[in-house]
Every structure is written in C-alpha cells, then in structure tokens.
Amino acid sequence: MGPLVVYEYISANTNLLMAFIIGIGFGFVLERSGFSSSRKLAGMFYGYDTTVLKVFFTAAIVAMLGLLFFSLFGWIDLSLVYINPTFLWSAMVGGAVMGAGFITGGFCPGTAFCALSIGKLDALAFIGGLVIGVLIFTEGFPMWEGLFYAENMGTPTINQLLGISRGIFGLLLILVALGMFFVGEWAERKFPREEY
C-alpha cells in the first residue's frame, strides 16, 4: 500500500503538496518544542537543557517503530523506503564539521528555518552562512570529491551489521534512549536555569 507516491496512489504534484503539509507539521512541532531558540538547543551540550536529546531520540524511535509496525501490517513496503547510503569517511568528517557548526552557530538547518519563522535574526545570519557553506562545497567539489565518495558501503542497516533483527535492535535503542533520558533529567536538575 505505501509509500503512496511509489505505488502511484498520489501524483508527483500531490506529493509536493504533501511535502508542504508535512513541512507545516515539522515546523510547528519544532517551534512548539522550543527548537526556535539557539540557547535552548545549545543547552544540550552543557546539560542545562536536554530537550534536543529527548525530542530527537523519541522521534527517531517512534518513526522507527512506526515503520516496523506498518511493515508488519502490510501498510508499507520497507524495500521502497529510501535508506541513506553509507559512505564511511564523509559521514564521519561531514558529521564532525556539522558538530563544530552546531556549537558555534547554535542551530542546524531545520531549526534555523523554524527560528527564522518567528523572527530570530541570528537564525537568518546562520542561514546566510549555510548558503555560503553549500556554495563552497559545490564550487570546490573536485577538491573533496575523493573524500565524498570514499569507502562506499552501499546501504547497510545497523542491525544487519550487528547481525540482529530490526525488532531486537529497536528494543536495544529504546533501552539506550531511556538511559540517556534518565541522565538528561538528572543533568537538568543539577544545572537548573531560567527558561529562555
């Protein structure tokens, strides 16, 4: 049955309309959760506000379990869902550069647009930086092309790598997340502060 666009239940243009509607939901939930505040986002790295941890891992787990159940019910064909390919080196270096950008700029791209929508001018500056950063990448592409394509592993899933089923890995991820939430709640009590 799903994904609906792959089975042509909905047209390409309807898919773009769905993107817009899903985006509204995305922006609304981000803002409602406080992701429009850079100091709140950065709080994650100082322990005074672990909202990012809680929202991020809860969302990943809910979507992961949702996909698992949908596939068990025959509602979605997981082989037709896009799985991000793994290029080992670029995933690590790219992630590290993004982490440096996160702690310096206080946003990631999605949250910056969310913050801009309520008038945060630091988010506008961050987005200006994003455009420059993307332009540097596209213009200088031959320079990092080797790194970009290095160690292509295809589209492995982490449970395949560990040799366990999706369900067992899901259970482990939930247990890990619960442990982290516990630490997060503890840290917020230890480093209290006013809400931004």
């Binding site: 790219g94 982490g99 950008g101 700029g105 206080g106 946003f107 791209p109 990448f137």
Partner: peptide, 10 residues
Amino acid sequence: GGILFGFGSQ
C-alpha cells in the same frame, strides 16, 4: 557556524 554546517551537510 552556518558556513561549517552548510559545508558539513553536503
């Protein structure tokens, strides 16, 4: 930060 994140995301 935006420049770094933009580059890193690509």
